[in-house]
């Protein structure tokens, strides 16, 4: 296809995929905490860990490039816009870069986790890990996670298809890039809501009563 998918589960037999989700999920959470809060030197081993995991899980390097747009946006917000009012440009720029890098590691870890783990298994494991919060809370959290995990790939797919449809019908991406915002907003919101409604119906049909339990 045009570009490799991100946040999509792809079955396989490598060590990352074979690792029990009950171990993989806490590891991912620990990684997220480390990548978010570690001192600057700690980002290097975190980066190496991502490279190593991606290599043994055989995840296409090109797929990581699709994480760039949100990162560039984040860098614009945290690194470039504050420059307008900053006195120390280099510090602000470095701070923006650091935040973007940390967020990039989180996205990359999420990409590896969702590519190597079946969404249903992931949601079930999350529920299992959160049983201490009580059945209602753990089920709700697992449901939300499941919804997010299934909705994100669907939304990305639809966004990509809409972009292609516009290209095929004469839209010039270089001249009028803002048209994308217009054609994406309503359909993508609709996909998100539809996914939510279908998941809710599916849960109700399988015996979950949100108002009673």
């Amino acid at each position: 296809m045009a570009s490799p998918l991100i946040f999509h589960y792809k079955p396989g037999q490598d060590p990352v995929r074979r690792m029990p989700t009950l171990i993989k999920l806490p590891l991912a959470v620990a990684f997220a905490v480390w990548a978010s809060l570690c001192p600057e030197w700690g980002l290097f081993p975190a980066f190496l860990a991502i490279l190593y995991a991606a290599k043994i899980a055989r995840i296409s390097w090109i797929s990581f490039l699709r994480l760039l747009p949100p990162l560039l946006f984040l860098f614009l917000v945290t690194g470039i816009l504050p420059l307008l009012q900053a006195h120390n440009f280099l510090d602000v720029l470095a701070d923006g870069l650091l935040r973007t890098f940390r967020f990039g590691l989180l996205l990359a870890a999420g990409h590896i986790l969702t590519t190597t783990t079946n969404p249903a298994t992931l949601a079930a494991t999350l529920e299992k890990l959160l049983t201490w919060t009580g059945p209602q809370a753990s089920r709700t959290l697992a449901t939300m996670a499941s919804l997010a995990l299934t909705a994100v790939p669907g939304i990305l797919d639809r966004a990509s298809a809409l972009r292609e449809a516009a290209l095929l019908r004469g839209w010039n991406s270089a001249k009028k890039p803002w048209i994308l915002a217009k054609i994406w907003t309503l359909p993508l919101l609709r996909v998100l809501l539809e996914r939510g409604v279908w998941t809710a119906w599916s849960l109700e049909l399988r015996g979950w009563r949100s108002l009673k339990k």
Binding site: R158, L162, W171, K176, I179, I183
Partner: peptide, 23 residues
């Protein structure tokens, strides 16, 4: 496309048909 919804770009029928000529 296989998925008809993925190719609808505007909110109304006429607007959608106008997308190509406009661009």
């Amino acid at each position: 496309f296989q998925d008809a919804d993925a190719q609808i770009l505007e909110a109304t029928v006429l607007e959608d048909a106008l997308f190509g000529p406009r661009h």
